[in-house]
């Protein structure tokens, strides 16, 4: 992964010498280049904030959807199943447009671009989180529930202290993947005017006419961001494992 990044960087720098490239637009040694670069990087704030807010909500909603899906009552399972199937079927871009333009008409509330993005991303992701939680919880041995039952734990305590801590350890890689996915999908919120990485790049392209350089920077921004997140998830996994072992 890291080697691939370095290769890509070298490639772009070398080819930057040919006439097709005009790196001056983002050359930090010039005044204009530095301003442009800073403009591009400033999108990072909303990309991260949007993704982290959305995934925090979707993890909670996903869990609340997964639990009835695991119950012995059929109606509860049907509700959970239906939610997952319906939400999963709607493309994220469509959901973003529907929440931003449609939902205010329906509810009469005005909604900011940021919260429309958060709601759409969280809603869409919650169906996947629910599936992840369901698989994680189902992977815990029956004996754990029986032991919890035999020491008189309530259902809520069994979940909170026995099942979920073990399930979350197992699904951590999958949750990490969802965060990566969310960071990428947040670029779609640019269509309703969210000032995140992609939107900033689009706006700069319009004024500077250098799509090649600007979008290359955009690619690198996502790449670095996601490599950092991946490393963070791996670190967390290792730490949780050593917690159990040492």
């Amino acid at each position: 992964m890291y080697r691939a990044t370095i290769c890509l960087l070298m490639l772009t720098l070398v080819s930057g010498c040919s006439d097709q490239w005009g790196w001056y637009v983002v050359d930090p040694t010039t005044k204009n280049g530095a301003v442009n670069l800073q403009f591009l990087l400033s999108g990072l704030y909303y990309t991260v904030l949007l993704s982290v807010t959305a995934i925090s909500i979707s993890v909670v909603v996903g869990l609340l959807i997964a639990l009835p899906g695991l119950s012995s009552s059929r109606p509860m399972r049907v509700v959970s199943r239906t939610y997952v199937e319906v939400v999963r079927a709607v493309p994220i871009l469509v959901l973003i447009l529907w929440v931003y333009y449609g939902l205010p008409q329906l509810s009469g509330l005005t909604i900011t671009v940021f919260w429309a993005g958060v709601i759409a991303l969280a809603l869409s992701d919650s169906a996947f989180e629910a599936e992840i939680f369901r698989a994680g919880i189902q992977s815990i041995a029956k004996g754990q529930y029986e032991a919890a039952h035999s020491i008189s734990l309530s259902y809520a305590d069994t979940m909170r202290f026995v099942i979920l801590p073990q399930a979350i350890r197992r699904i951590l890689p999958a949750l990490g993947n969802q965060l990566v996915y969310m960071l990428k999908m947040s670029s779609l919120v640019s269509v309703i005017g969210m000032q995140e990485l992609t939107r900033k790049a689009n706006e700069l392209v319009v004024s500077e006419y250098r799509p090649l350089e600007i979008y290359t920077i955009l690619v690198l921004e996502y790449l670095v961001l996601i490599l950092i997140v991946s490393a963070g998830v791996r670190w967390l996994e290792r730490r949780m494992q050593s917690d159990e072992r040492n």
């Binding site: 041995a141 004996g143 754990q144 029986e146 032991a147 035999s150 020491i151 008189s152 202290f161 026995v162 801590p165 073990q166 350890r169 159990e244």
Partner: peptide, 15 residues
């Protein structure tokens, strides 16, 4: 609450 149980596979909480 008045009955304790011990299982063949122990079923301790590994975490």
């Amino acid at each position: 609450s008045s009955v304790g149980m011990v299982f063949q596979q122990f079923n301790l909480f590994p975490h």
